[in-house]
């Protein structure tokens, strides 16, 4: 399980995250929500090794995560997706998924040098692209896809690394509502399929409510609520932060 204690991240004088605690148990989907600027993405960046916290500890399966590089984390089973997905690559969807697959192992990355691996391609496509509705696009260059599809590719890429902990950074931000609910549905499917724990950063309440087992609410860089979806909706502090009245 993931255990974060007192995580603090400062940028110059600005405290983006100030003493954040959070636990994630195996196989659990946790929604991390909060208004803009609450420090959600920054906190996730600290877990995934993009930022090094100024204080606090983050432990994953009893190993310290602080200061590890993303590629080390990937090998320890921590994968993530990005809020803004890359659009410039002329790699195909399947290529991206293969890169995702390759980061979990420690190999030199030369395994396809002699074999053609068509059967493997089919397997990958079926396992990671099919559930996300990307099967038809496996040979499409990433830059030709719509934004929603690219976000789905990013999830497939992270999944291919077979993470035990998957961090989704606003997986549906900027995606059309219909697609958004479909994507959220996939998140559940993923968990059932692969048994990984999921932390989902999001500020669309409805999406979070229908997907997550538990909700953590952040505001101003600290945790203000941790509990069930129903609890979050009735919590006065959460209502104040979200709706602006006491």
């Amino acid at each position: 399980m993931l255990m974060a204690r007192g995580v603090t991240i400062r940028f110059g004088g600005v405290v983006a995250v100030g003493g954040m605690d959070m636990d994630v148990h195996p196989g659990e989907i946790v929604g991390l929500i909060g208004p803009n600027g609450a420090g959600k993405t920054t906190f996730v960046n600290a877990i995934s090794g993009t930022y090094v916290p100024n204080a606090g500890s983050i432990r994953w399966q009893d190993e310290d995560l602080v200061g590890r590089t993303p590629n080390r984390l990937a090998r320890m089973g921590v994968g993530r997706t990005f809020q803004n997905v890359a659009s410039l690559s002329d790699l195909t969807v399947l290529d991206i998924v293969k890169v995702g697959r390759s980061v979990r192992g420690a190999g030199g990355g030369l395994r396809d040098l002699f074999a053609s691996g068509r059967r493997q391609d089919d397997e990958l496509a079926q396992k990671y692209l099919e559930p996300l509705g990307l099967a038809d696009h496996r040979n499409t260059p990433l830059q030709m896809l719509s934004y929603g599809h690219r976000k789905a590719v990013d999830i497939a890429r992270a999944l291919a690394g077979e993470p035990d902990l998957l961090l989704l950074d606003e997986p549906v931000a900027g995606v059309a509502p219909a697609e958004a609910f479909a994507l959220a549905g996939f998140v559940k499917k993923i968990r059932d399929l692969m048994g990984c724990a999921v932390v989902m950063v999001e500020h669309k309440m409805d999406i979070v409510m229908c997907t997550c087992d538990r909700i953590v609410v952040m505001a101003g860089g600290v945790k203000i609520f941790d509990g069930s979806c129903a609890g979050a909706q009735s919590d006065p502090e959460v209502r104040r932060v979200y709706l602006g009245h006491a």
Binding site: F82, S89, G108, G109, L110, R157
Partner: peptide, 21 residues
Amino acid sequence: TDLGRRFILIRDSEMVARGMG
């Protein structure tokens, strides 16, 4: 190969490649 794909990914964006692990 995986190595070759990583080359291209790094060319396109080193930051994205690093983030992907």
